[in-house]
């Protein structure tokens, strides 16, 4: 871990241990020295935080309670009430409808994330450590690709995908995600590798290591947390994508779960509890990743904001 922490580029969201000790001291001293006013500020502070926390959690509350209700409980006027009895049938119904699409999303997002991060890692390595003339301009031009509204490429993309016979297939969608993931994955890895001291590489080069060996023996072993960050980022964006999927996948059997969920909620005879259960199912993988690997998720957010 310690070797990885050396090269973290994005700010570690944990406060540094040194700072924590000083803050701990101040925190314990505060209430006594500043008295009642400080205490009121403190209460206000927590009150505000709780209020915001309530706001952030409201949709989760609605999702959870609604999805556990039976069909007699789901009229709109009972939206805020707890279920009269726990009924998990809605999950079964939602799963029955969404499971093929859920599996599609997995089949799509896992390889797409892995391939994307490999591509990004190699690109980042070249752009950080093997700069060619104009490399920074090329990098900026690549970056532009992550900001464009995809509508601006959607029509010809549809044409190309059908010309190469990948229209409507998950492989085609995967390819699209990998291509349009190049800017962000390259960005994250480039910034990540830029923080690795070039002396380290020079030393290896003096010892006779070439492009590939430097990558394999120095960069790659230090890349673990970078890969985790990019894998999470790409998995999330592929899993949560709607626009590419709804345009490039016309057949329901190949839909990823976002498109299926939107359709489930737009269809005529679907009960709210089933829709909410479906929404929970669709959100589960990315939420689980967030809960387990939140640290890296946050790092990806920071890295994605260019300056890192």
């Amino acid at each position: 871990m310690s070797s990885i922490d050396l090269v973290v580029t994005a700010e570690d969201e944990q406060p540094a241990p040194v700072r924590r000790s000083t803050t701990g001291g101040r925190g314990s001293r505060g209430p006594h020295s500043r008295g009642a006013r400080a205490r009121i500020t403190r209460v206000l502070l927590y009150a505000l935080l709780f209020l915001f926390a309530l706001w952030y959690l409201t949709p989760i509350y609605v999702l959870l309670v609604t999805s556990m209700k039976g069909s007699s409980d789901i009229t709109p006027d009972k939206m805020w009430m707890l279920p009269t009895s726990i009924n998990l049938g809605s999950f079964a119904s939602a799963w029955a409808k969404l499971s093929p699409n859920f599996i599609n999303s997995l089949v799509l997002a896992v390889p797409a994330a892995i391939l994307s991060s490999m591509v990004g890692s190699l690109n980042g390595y070249v752009l950080a450590k093997w700069k060619f003339r104009g490399a920074d301009t090329v990098f900026t031009l690549i970056l532009f690709g992550m900001f464009i509204p995809y509508q601006a490429i959607l029509i010809p993309l549809t044409q190309i995908m059908s010309n190469i016979g990948l229209y409507g297939s998950l492989q085609g969608l995967m390819l699209v995600h990998i291509i349009y993931g190049i800017p962000i994955t390259t960005l994250i890895f480039r910034n990540y590798y830029a923080a690795i001291p070039t002396e380290l590489l020079e030393a290896a080069k003096v010892d006779g290591a070439g492009f590939i060996r430097v990558y394999r023996s120095i960069l790659l072993p230090l890349s673990a947390s970078g890969f985790v960050v990019v894998l999470i980022w790409q998995f999330n964006s592929v899993w949560n994508d709607f626009l590419f999927a709804v345009t490039l996948i016309p057949n329901q059997a190949n839909w990823p779960v976002t498109v299926a969920l939107n359709n489930l909620s737009g269809s005529m005879i679907t009960d709210w509890n089933v829709q909410m259960a479906g929404a929970l199912i669709a959100a589960l993988p990315t939420l689980l990743i967030f809960i387990i690997l939140g640290r890296y998720f946050v790092r990806g957010l920071l890295a994605g904001s260019l300056k890192g």
Binding site: L63, N240, F242, L261, T286, F290, V298
Partner: peptide, 14 residues
């Protein structure tokens, strides 16, 4: 931060 992990579609539905 967790809402960031959720898709716009799920957010919209809820």
């Amino acid at each position: 931060v967790f809402p960031m992990a959720v898709s716009f579609i799920v957010t919209g539905v809820v």
